[in-house]
Nucleic acid binder design. Structure first.
Lengths: 216, 216
DNA sequence: TTTCGATTGCGCCAATTGTCACAATTCTAC
DNA sequence: GTAGAATTGTGACAATTGGCGCAATCGAAA
């Protein structure tokens, strides 16, 4: 159990899915073996970093040869818990929420939307892609019954913190948040924010420097 | 010019938009002054980190009092280059691309979609929200003419790297990528990826640990 | 077999990033 | 005016993260 000796840095966990993605692609292309150098080239990271990241979880490579792609991707999927299905619920069934329910990219990766909730009584009872919309009041019970571990929040910003707090009190420990806010949650709850505006705003700083230089 | 002495860590740039967002909200709520402690509480960051981050760009606070919200948000917007309009182009006008063009959240923040491109000739010429779809071949010229600094990529994964490389050769230095790939770009080009599956996959690791513990 | 080029895993060090703690300063209240 | 409470900005330190370099090992080729 090599992963129980030292705590694993969170940044490492954040990189593993990237490795999985590229390795899966390599596997589909028929590549059987890959070195940390080649993998690093594909991901724009140093080979040393890849080797170190992987070494937190085991010894997957062979000296002089590299990593067996199928084997490594399998091990990493297991490490990340991607070897099972995860049930999710979508909260907020507006344009965005409907798009999320219809998004075909989740299911093949093991993420299944099994419930949907909306505050608007007019929406309750409607059906999208096998999923019937329920009222917010039914959330706690459904989350328990359907073993929902991950919530996807797509409500308008003003309601987002309230909804997230409610999810937390339902025992949800992982939230994918599409609302443009900085949610406050207990530290044992993980939140990932999807926020294109924020992403754009982190790039303009560098563009500005460039633009200002050109102007002077 | 306090920001010219030391290079500013990239992580700091990544946090600034968060500060801007919360400060803007505070401003709207009528808060005039805020301390680093209160701001830190809202963002789940230590006060020291906020003070240090801000200190890279100037001295915005007053001892014994805190930061004037309006003033600080204005300064930070200027630092980030959010005090101007940024023209963007969307490439790939499928379901996702159309949703991006119609998304009402960009314009208020100064990001304007002024062009749209698609490889499918049947799409070319159609109009969405003031924006006429052009062929990929017209990209270079339009990017120059319309002063487009940021590209938003919403093409299917298999085409994404090719499109991104083409954008790079058109001189684009900032790309918001919705395709589930790890794009390779020169180091002077910035890419931010929007990828909900990847975000979910970074959370399951912790859920798995919890689940496994419960099982044993 | 033996040799040789390739590549891993990891100890150790370097670089980066975060936090502490405190002097300096501001505001308020009396 | 003065005292005291609050809070910034920053230098010094601590913690975290990344990368180098090399012994160990693998596979191929002769």
């Amino acid at each position: 159990m090599p992963d129980s000796i030292h705590a694993i840095p969170e940044v490492v966990i954040l990189r593993l899915p990237l490795y999985v993605r590229v390795l899966t692609q390599l596997k589909d292309e028929g590549t059987e073996v890959i070195s940390s150098r080649e993998l690093g080239d594909r991901l724009s990271v140093t080979p040393a970093q890849i080797r170190k990241d992987l070494s937190y979880f085991g010894r997957f490579g062979k000296q002089g040869r590299g990593y067996n792609v199928s084997y490594l991707v399998g091990e990493l999927r297991q490490v990340l818990g991607l070897d099972r299905q995860w049930n999710t619920a979508v909260i907020g069934i507006g344009r965005l929420g409907r798009a999320i329910i219809n998004y075909p990219g989740f299911a093949p990766e093991g993420f299944k939307v099994v419930a949907a909730f909306d505050a608007d009584p007019a929406q309750v009872g409607r059906q999208f892609e096998d999923v019937a919309i329920q009222s917010i009041g039914e959330m706690q019970q459904t989350i328990r019954e359907r073993n929902i571990a991950i919530a996807i929040v797509a409500v308008p910003a003003p309601q987002a913190q309230r909804v997230i707090s409610e999810l937390v009190s339902c025992g949800v420990k992982a939230i994918l948040n599409y609302a443009p806010i900085a949610p406050q949650v207990p530290e044992d709850v993980r939140v990932r924010n999807i926020d294109p505006v924020l992403a754009l705003q982190t790039m303009t700083y560098h563009l500005k420097v460039r633009q200002d230089e050109a102007g002077s």
